[in-house]
Amino acid sequence: MTTSIIVYAAAIGQLYLLSYFYPKQIINRISHVLDKYPASTHPKLYPTENGEERAKKGLTRYKYITRSTLILGIILMVGALITKTEIKDSMVTLFAMLQFFPFMLLEIAELNHYKLMREENKAPKRSADLKRRNYFDYISPLKFSLAVIMFGIYITFNLYRNDFNLSFGSDGLITLVTIIGVHIYFAITVIWIMYGKKLDPHQEHKDRDRHIGGVVSTTYLVSIAVSTFLLIYGLLQHYSLDPWEPVALSIYFQLCAYIGLGTMLRTNTVENINFEVYKS
């Protein structure tokens, strides 16, 4: 009974954080930018004709999608309570994927917006900071070593739990390949954001630096969260504490949202961004 209450509490927390709290923060942020920096005063912020209208329509679509997810979540939760259905870890994962989907759409829309900005940018003058960007400018080697240690602990634990059996198709090998794949993805993201093409052609150097810092911190914290979660999840399976698995999964997804979205929203506040660069 106690376990069920905790599972429901975790699921409600997940529903609140991923389908209400963060979407609301994002909607408020975009609305604030649209109101305070319109196309009439900041044309470079809206690269296409009717760019402001398009942005407003996009925001409305985003509102509908997140609200639909929230309503669906409430219906599922009430339905599960009435029918006394046990919430399984697969249900938590599937619903989290659905909750993360609007954020993914938003990310794609943002990248498309930057692409249009670059295409529209006809300014003959281009500037760059004459300073080499280094990973450790954004995160201390001590903090970085903590992520490496956590990664090492999980790998060792995974090998031990699977009796050092890494034969083709074994659980140990699949988990190992997955976690290494996730970290390769993080590394590529960081390299791309640090040394790749400037996404926003008008962005001030210090704003870009802050954005890079946010991405580096997020990937670093998510790396620790992934290793820690997999370690806890493995321990729960090892000690046959299966009923706690949905709780661990739900907390993990909430933590990922807090780290991923929360860090970006906290480090890159609208007040800190220089919008003067988007004036004509």
Binding site: M194, G196, K197
Partner: peptide
Amino acid sequence: QIKKAVQSGNLSAGDSLPSIRQLANDLDL
């Protein structure tokens, strides 16, 4: 510009410069 920065003291001996890829991408060159 790099020479001017050295002459004006904005860049001193031993200061690091961005990698070729970083500078090329930042300047879209």
